[in-house]
């Protein structure tokens, strides 16, 4: 009997290394009369760690939410593995399998245990067999160092633990790209590190990561590429050494001098 090819990891992983896995071209987005993004272009290659930094209100979060179609854009083009996001007939399922997102407020499902949180999307959305999903979920929970917490409810965990569950939940869909929207901004200082360590491990395993962050030390250490945004445009981008060591634009220098 001929079965259709398994449409999972392998298919996505075949994306060639050289062309950008995520590509934004001249992206514009307004909320009412306020233009949040005023022509943003950006290319992210497979396995790259990209950090987006900039003052609050500069459109960082909007930018990252546009990539998986949570926020629709008005003009321009966003492609993820060649799939156009700015498309009225967008296949959301296909896009969101490729792109995982983690939010500042974790947004775990409070009525479900840790294990159920991680298993839910593969079970209900992808309708994968339960045994397989559970094995994968347990492995992911172990990976974010929360073994033993499988049956806890989100309300019983610390912020850092909840955020790691959110990361595991997103990984359970086996995405190729992970988006992190200020994931440490709501955490107590002592739990920030445990979340950053988890992200760093993902990065070293070759996951493509796009982060909006205020953790400059982390960006400097882990990022392959840093983008500095201000008032809806990318002011400057380059390697961490370039941005943090020898920023060209006065706005970048001013921002960094305030924050570092």
């Amino acid at each position: 009997m001929l079965l259709p090819p398994e449409p999972s990891v392998t298919e996505h992983r075949s994306w060639p290394d050289e062309s950008p896995i995520v590509s934004l071209k001249d992206v514009h987005k307004s909320f009412g009369s306020f233009e949040v993004l005023r022509g943003v272009s950006m290319d992210v290659r497979k396995g790259e760690i990209v950090c987006i930094i900039g003052p609050s209100g500069s459109g960082k979060s909007t930018l990252i939410r546009c990539i998986n179609g949570l926020t629709p854009i008005h003009q321009g083009s966003i492609t993820v593995e060649g799939q156009e996001v700015n498309d009225a007939k967008l296949d959301k399922l296909s896009l969101r399998r490729k792109v995982g997102i983690v939010f500042q407020q974790y947004n775990l499902f409070p009525h479900k245990t840790v294990l159920e949180n991680v298993m839910m999307a593969p079970l209900k959305v992808l309708r994968e067999p339960k045994a397989e999903v559970e094995a994968r979920a347990r492995a992911l929970i172990a990976k974010v160092r929360l073994t033993g917490k499988e049956d806890a409810y989100p309300g019983q965990l610390s912020g850092g633990q909840q955020q790691r569950v959110a990361i595991a939940r997103s990984l359970a869909m086996r995405p190729d790209v992970m988006l992190f929207d200020e994931v440490t901004a709501a955490l107590d200082p002592e739990t920030v590190k445990e979340v950053l360590v988890t992200i760093k491990e993902l990065a070293t395993e070759g996951m493509t990561c796009i982060l909006v962050t205020h953790e400059m030390g982390f960006a400097r250490e882990v990022a392959d590429h840093v983008y500095f945004t201000d008032r809806g445009v990318i002011v400057e981008h380059g390697s961490p050494a370039q941005i943090f060591g020898a920023a060209q634009d006065p706005r970048t220098r001013q921002f960094l001098s305030q924050i570092l």
């Binding site: 998986n68 949570l70 959301k92 399922l93 969101r96 399998r97 995982g100 997102i101 939010f103 407020q105 947004n107 775990l108 499902f109 839910m120 999307a121 209900k124 959305v125 992808l126 959110a166 939940r169 997103s170 869909m173």
Partner: peptide
């Protein structure tokens, strides 16, 4: 909270699935 809808949306849940399960 809207965050529940957003995170379900991010995990590829449809509107009906989000209502039913979350």
């Amino acid at each position: 909270p809207t965050g529940q809808w957003e995170s379900a949306d991010g995990l590829a849940f449809t509107r009906a699935q989000t209502l039913r399960w979350i």
